[in-house]
């Protein structure tokens, strides 16, 4: 069931999230470029043919749009400042009630550079997350989730399994429409009503089948109230911490407290779970290596820029490529 060559899905996510954190710390064109390049190379050489593997292509498109939009807004609405003027956009007079808002004006080189670098950070962030979601098989990710998320995981497993079926159903129903002499192009009603009926019937059958196979069978263990109580306390602390943050006070201590309480609650919930896992995918040496490289990339990204550092960061971010081969699709 588990292809030996694929990495544990959570390892892919640890890699993607590490790169995302690294981008938030790297304020340099070359460092960001290294991260983006590494993410793209790893993804395109290691992804499978599954539909989710497209995530990076979509992510890159979205990131490009965001980058361009951001540059465009920055140029159009820029606040006048000192610097080398590259070109000037004619000023547009805005009505009185919009006082303080500028449209058009001088565009300086410093400004463009600054905006571009900032935009590149966002670009890298989107690419890093999209890369992980291209590489980690969502179904295996769901299976690898800890027990607290099991029920939602099952709902999502059902959903992800059924989506291709429903896409087929829509095609089949549209064909049936044509056979009944329907020439309407969209015919939302005539497509969606049968689809829904089918989906709901299927839900009942599924529920029956799950019930008949012991789903939801649970021996009572642990105190069911305790995790919720801990969660409540954790969120309360988090709210306090955030309010401190917003009004400009120190927030660090309460934040740490809040996060520990939340983790404790999740841990308790997980312990109350009595399900077992069949042949769970192993977290091996390669996975630990990828995780370690992720942590190193975060550390490197915070250092001050040298060319050597950029090369190193690129190599570290590229790490998964050395321990994996292309993802294979199940037939």
């Amino acid at each position: 069931m588990v292809d030996v060559r694929t990495l544990h899905p959570l390892a892919w996510w640890s890699w993607g999230i590490s790169l995302a954190i690294a981008t938030s710390r790297a304020g340099n064109f070359w460092l960001l470029g290294g991260i983006i390049l590494a993410a793209v190379i790893v993804t395109f050489s290691r992804r499978s043919d599954d539909p989710w593997a497209n995530a990076l292509s979509i992510g890159i498109k979205i990131a490009c749009i965001a980058l361009l939009l951001r540059m465009f807004i920055a140029i159009l609405f820029s606040i006048p400042e000192q610097g080398k003027v590259l070109f000037t956009i004619p000023r547009i007079k805005l009505p009185q009630w919009l006082a303080g808002i500028f449209l058009g004006g001088d565009v300086t080189q410093e400004r463009l550079q600054f905006v571009f670098l900032e935009s590149l950070t966002i670009f890298a962030l989107v690419v890093a997350i999209a890369a992980a979601s291209s590489l980690a098989n969502p179904k295996q990710t769901l299976r690898a989730l800890p027990g607290v998320l099991h029920e939602a995981g099952v709902a999502l497993i059902i959903a992800t399994t059924l989506i291709p079926h429903f896409v087929m159903s829509v095609k089949r129903i549209r064909q049936a429409r044509a056979l009944r002499g329907d020439v309407e192009k969209f015919g939302f009603k005539k497509t969606l009503v049968p689809l829904f009926e089918e989906a709901l019937e299927r839900a009942l059958i599924l529920a029956e089948s799950m019930e008949a196979r012991g789903y939801g069978h649970k021996p009572k263990n642990g105190n069911p109230l305790l995790p919720t109580l801990a969660m409540f306390a954790g969120l309360f602390a988090l709210l306090y911490s955030i309010i401190s943050l917003v009004i400009g006070n120190s927030y660090q201590i309460s934040l740490v407290l809040a996060l520990s309480l939340i983790m404790f609650s999740l841990y308790l919930g997980n312990r109350n779970n009595s399900r077992t896992k069949y042949r769970p995918q192993k977290w091996g040496l390669r996975e630990s290596f990828v995780l370690l490289m992720g942590v190193i990339s975060i550390a490197f990204a915070g250092l001050s820029f040298t060319l050597l550092l950029a090369v190193l960061l690129f190599l570290v971010a590229l790490a998964p490529i050395f321990v994996t081969s292309r993802e294979r699709v199940l037939t």
Binding site: A20, P51, W52, A53, N54, A55, L56, S57, I58, G59, I62, L125, V126, I129, A130, A132, S133, S134, P138, L156, T160, I163
Partner: peptide
């Protein structure tokens, strides 16, 4: 997850 729209 299925259509690849995962992002921040």
């Amino acid at each position: 997850l299925l259509t690849g729209g995962v992002g921040p």
